[in-house]
Amino acid sequence: MRIAVDHPVRPGLRMESADGGRLVLVQGERPVLFARQRVTHHGVHYARTGTYVSPLAPVRAATARAFADFAPPGSEAWTDRWAAHAREELCGAAEGPLHAGDWHLAPMTSDWFVESHWAKLLPHDTDRGHLTWFGYGDPDEDARDLLPLRALSAPDAPRVKAYRRQYREGLLPPVVLWWISGLQSPVVLDGHDRLVAALAEGGRPTVLLLSGAVDAGHVAMWSELPLRAYEERMAALRPGPLAGVKASTVSRQLAAELLAVERAPRITRAWPLAGGVAAWERATTEHVPGWRPKRRP
């Protein structure tokens, strides 16, 4: 789903940056996440402040059941309905991430998530930690595929238990993520407890990813190679009983590749942090005292 946004220019939930790979995610006027990239860009250190609030209203059980009556849970129509619901919520949110420009809100490609990383999420979710991007000798638990913006609830917390029941009934709404390129990771925009519920039940959540949409020039440039490869593969096909099947396979592969190009996330915009490095250092001292990420390779 593509979302065209004409305002605001500066959103309520935004990334701000200062020199030296210093980042801060601000919601309203309060910092919710500090981060600092490693020198060699092998990962990022982060510290949450505990003040994040989802810009989407809580999903009522009646809504989840109504959407399940509309279309089978997990189906394309069901997912599209939830995407439309999230779009409406985000467009009306004063402290959400949308700003002027084009956006995508769609199911996240499954090949992003490494199956073995899901098991690390609950036991290794901490307010201060490190996400590795490439490994390179980092602790194994630092390899995670998404970053919650608040502490995850216990699997037996009352709200999580209610969502676990929804998961078992096949009604659990998707978790909404937001791609932030400065972190090289999606963050959990909405659905922290739904995420815990799915994992606690031994399953995986359905996810919708919000990301800035790349422009037409980007799409055209990166579509050239798969289109050329498609033409070459089609030209190489020989007549025979399997020619139609092979042609269909090649066409489906092209469609998937072009969709991936079209949905590629745009680099996340970061606004300059007023006061620069000094302001970032003062803010970390105030909001995450004692956090001093080493600027290691």
Rank of each mutant, 00 (worst) to 15 (best):
D145I: 14
G135F: 02
R266Y: 04
G28L: 02
P107I: 14
A220H: 09
E201A: 06
S54E: 15
L56W: 08
R87M: 08
L254V: 09
W103M: 01
E16K: 01
R194E: 09
E224T: 06
E29H: 13
F70W: 14
L177I: 10
V219W: 04
R22G: 03
T51W: 15
R22K: 00
T49M: 06
P155S: 12
L189P: 00
L195D: 05
G275T: 00
R81C: 11
V24F: 01
D127K: 04
R14H: 03
L90D: 02
P241I: 01
S181H: 12
A198P: 08
R295V: 10
S110H: 13
A143G: 07
H287S: 14
R296H: 13
M234Q: 12
D215T: 03
D190P: 07
R204G: 04
P158K: 12
L13K: 01
E88W: 06
L237D: 06
V187M: 04
D190L: 05
H287E: 15
A68C: 01
T268Q: 14
A216F: 00
S153P: 05
M15G: 14
G96C: 07
G244I: 09
R48W: 11
R295M: 09
G135D: 15
E76F: 07
A86W: 01
Q27F: 07
A260E: 15
T206D: 14
Q253D: 09
R252K: 05
P272K: 05
A197W: 01
A47Q: 11
V44M: 08
P186N: 06
L105C: 09
F67V: 15
R30V: 07
R266W: 04
E76N: 01
A216N: 05
G21W: 13
E76S: 12
R48Q: 12
F70K: 13
A151C: 05
R14K: 02
S248P: 01
S248N: 13
T285H: 12
L25E: 01
Y136I: 11
A143H: 09
D125V: 02
R144T: 11
M1K: 04
H7Q: 14
G20Y: 02
Y46M: 07
V196P: 06
E257N: 14
A278L: 11
R36M: 13
E115W: 12
W179Q: 06
R263W: 08
Q37C: 12
R14N: 03
E76C: 00
W82L: 07
R128N: 04
P73S: 04
K120A: 09
P58A: 02
E89Y: 07
R168S: 12
P239R: 14
R2F: 03
R150I: 12
M234E: 11
D102F: 03
T249A: 10
G240M: 05
H130L: 15
A86F: 13
A94W: 00
T206A: 14
T40I: 11
D6T: 09
L121P: 03
E115D: 15
R2L: 10
L189R: 02
W222H: 00
P186Y: 06
G43S: 06
P97K: 02
G217I: 11
W280E: 00
R159F: 10
E29A: 14
P239H: 13
R295S: 14
H85L: 11
E224H: 07
A18W: 08
T49S: 02
M1L: 09
R282A: 15
V160H: 13
L227Q: 08
V9M: 10
E169P: 05
P289C: 08
G290S: 11
